[in-house]
Nucleic acid binder design. Sequence first.
DNA 1: ATCCTCCGTGTAATCGATTCCACGGGCTCA
DNA 2: TGAGCCCGTGGAATCGATTACACGGAGGAT
Lengths: 338, 338
Amino acid sequence: MASIKDVAARAGVSVATVSRVLNSHPSVSPEARARVLAAVDGLGYRPNAVARSLRTDQTRTLGLVISDVLNPYFTELARSVEEEARALGYSVIIGNADEQPDLQDHHVRTLLDRRIDGLLVSPTDGGSPLMLDAARAGTPMVFVDRWIPGVDVPVVRADGRAAVRDLVAHLHALGHRRLAIIAGPAATTTGSERVEAFREALREHRLALPEAYIGHGDFQADSGRRSTERFLALPEPPEVVFAADNLMALGALDAIRAHGLRVPHDIGLAAFDDIPWFVHTDPPITAIAQPTGELGRAAVRALVDRIEGRPPQSVTLPARLVVRSSCGEAAPTPGSTP
Amino acid sequence: MASIKDVAARAGVSVATVSRVLNSHPSVSPEARARVLAAVDGLGYRPNAVARSLRTDQTRTLGLVISDVLNPYFTELARSVEEEARALGYSVIIGNADEQPDLQDHHVRTLLDRRIDGLLVSPTDGGSPLMLDAARAGTPMVFVDRWIPGVDVPVVRADGRAAVRDLVAHLHALGHRRLAIIAGPAATTTGSERVEAFREALREHRLALPEAYIGHGDFQADSGRRSTERFLALPEPPEVVFAADNLMALGALDAIRAHGLRVPHDIGLAAFDDIPWFVHTDPPITAIAQPTGELGRAAVRALVDRIEGRPPQSVTLPARLVVRSSCGEAAPTPGSTP
DNA sequence: ATCCTCCGTGTAATCGATTCCACGGGCTCA
DNA sequence: TGAGCCCGTGGAATCGATTACACGGAGGAT
C-alpha cells in the first residue's frame, strides 16, 4: 500500500508538503497542491490512520460498551450513537458485554489499548476496578442508560419513575391488585431503580410488593421465563407481571404460553422498553418507551464535549407509558364494537 | 499514559528487553523478566496497540460491514462473528450500511484506512468499485449472506432453495394457489435469489408468479408495508404473502392489521429469516430459519484462514422451514381440541 | 590455553504520519 | 537601498512499539 513517501516522490515534493496538502494547511502553493493531489489520485493513496493516530495521539474513535447486542433496545442505541458520532467525525467501536462483567472488562481493556478518544458505557455491574481506574485516570467517559454511583462521570439516561407510576395507575384502574415485577440484577442501576419506582408507585395505591412477587432476573429472556414460572407456581399468583426489560418480557410470554394461559385473560404482562415487535405480539404488549435515539445522540454529544474540552452535561429524559392490551381491556376505541 | 520507555527506566533495562518480556521472547534472564513485570505492574502499563500495529503491520482486527443493524438477523450474525473472532484473538469493528451503498462505502473506506487485517461484508449492492478494488488489491475479504458475483472472494451463506420449495409445498397443501412475494433489491444476491427459488418452486406446482404478485422491497419494514398495501388493492389479492426478510414481514403485518384483516384467516404470511419474536406474534409466523450462528463462525474462520495464509473455503449451509400457523391451520397437535 | 558458540542485553533503524525550525527569495516600507 | 516580513518549502525529530545487529562474557570443545 502506498505511503506518504511514495506520494512525495511521485509529486516531486517533500513529505512535509504532502502532509500539508492533506491537512489543508494554508501555506502550500497551488502548483504543489495540484501535483500532490494528482499523485494521490494516481496512486490511490489513503493516509494510514494508524500512523496518524500514533503521531497525533488521537484516534477519532469512540468506544461503546453495551450490555447485550441481541437486545433491540441496545441495538437501537448503538445505531443512534454511531449516527451522531459519524456526523461529528468520529467512528464507533462496539463491544458487547453480554451482561458478563468479565467480558465487559475485556472490551474496555481492548478499547483502552487502542487508545480510543472516549468511552461510552452502559455498565453491566456496579463497577469494575478497571473502569473506575480509567475514569479516575482521566479517560473521557460517559455512562448511558445505566451508571455507577459515586463516580464523577456524566450520565445520560431515561427516567422511568413517572411512567412506572402511570403504569401502576393504569393497572390499578383495570382492577389489578396483585402486581409482580421481574427485576434486573441489583448491581445495575436500572435493575434496582425500576424495582424501587415500582414499589413506590404501589405504595401510593396502598399496595404491597411481597418478596415472592419480585423475580430476580438478569435482563435475559431465560431469567424472565424462570421468574414467571416461579410466579405461576405460587398459591396466589400475581394478576400482572411487569418485566424490567423486553427480553425478560419475551421469556415471560414463553412461560405463560407454556402453561397454556392466555394474556391478558389469565394474567397480564407489561414491559420496560418498547420495541416494534410489541405491536404484533399476541396480544400487543403494554410497555414503557424510552427515547432511545435521543439518548444515544445526547450521550455522544456529551462525550465529544468532554473530549474536545467543553464541559459535558448529564442528561435525563422522561420515558413514557404506551398502553396496549396485554394487561386487560383498554378503553374502547370510538367506533369499535365489543 | 505510561510508555515502554517508562517501564524500561523503572526496571533499569532497555526498551528492547521490556519488549522481549512482553512478547515472551525466550532469551531474557529470570531476574530481568521479574523486574520488568514488577515495573509493568507498578505503572499499570498497557502496550499501545496503535504503535504496535504501525510497526508490525497488523491490527488483529476484523471489519464487519452489515446491511442493517436493526435487523435481528444481522445482529445475531454480528454477535457470532465477534465471539468467534475473539476466540481466535481478533477484535471486530462493525459498520452499519443501513442498506445504503454510500454508507457501505464509507465504512469500507474507514475500515481500510485503519488497516484492519480482513473484511467481512454482506454487500448492500452489486459491488462498489471501492470494494472490488480492495478485493483485487489483495485485502483479505469474505462475503457473508450476500455476495457479489464474479469476484474471487469466498462466500459463506445459507442456501434457501430447498426450504423455499418446502414452504411452497406446505402452502400448496393448505390449498393456497395465489402466492405473492415481497422481494429484496435485485442488486443483492439474496434479493434476486429468493425470488428465483420461489418462482421455480411455484413452477413445480404449475403455478405462475405474475408481475403483480412481486413486491419490490428493500429489506426494510416500510417497503413491506407498501408492497402489501399494493397487493391488497389488487382486484384479486394473493392468499399468502411471503416476505424475503423479517423486517418486511413486520411491515406486511402492519399493513394487514391496518386493513382490519386477520392472519391467516383473510391472508397468510410467511417470512425468510426466523427470529425469536415470530413465536409470539399474532399468529406465530411460519418462517425459513438460517443457521445464523454457524454462518458467522464459518465466515470468521474462512477470513482468518485467508489472513494467516491458509486457503479459505466457501461454505454453504442449508436453511430450513419452520411451520407455524400464519399460513393456515397446521396439522392439529395430538390432544388439542378444535 | 585458545577458539567457538550461545546467551542476555543494548543500540539503533524502522513503521507512516505530523510539525517545529531553518532557509531562501520576493515583497513592502522607510 | 537596506531592513524586516511573510511565504513556500524541506530537513529532521517525534510518537511507541518491534527487531536486526553488535557486543561482552561465560562455558564447552579441542
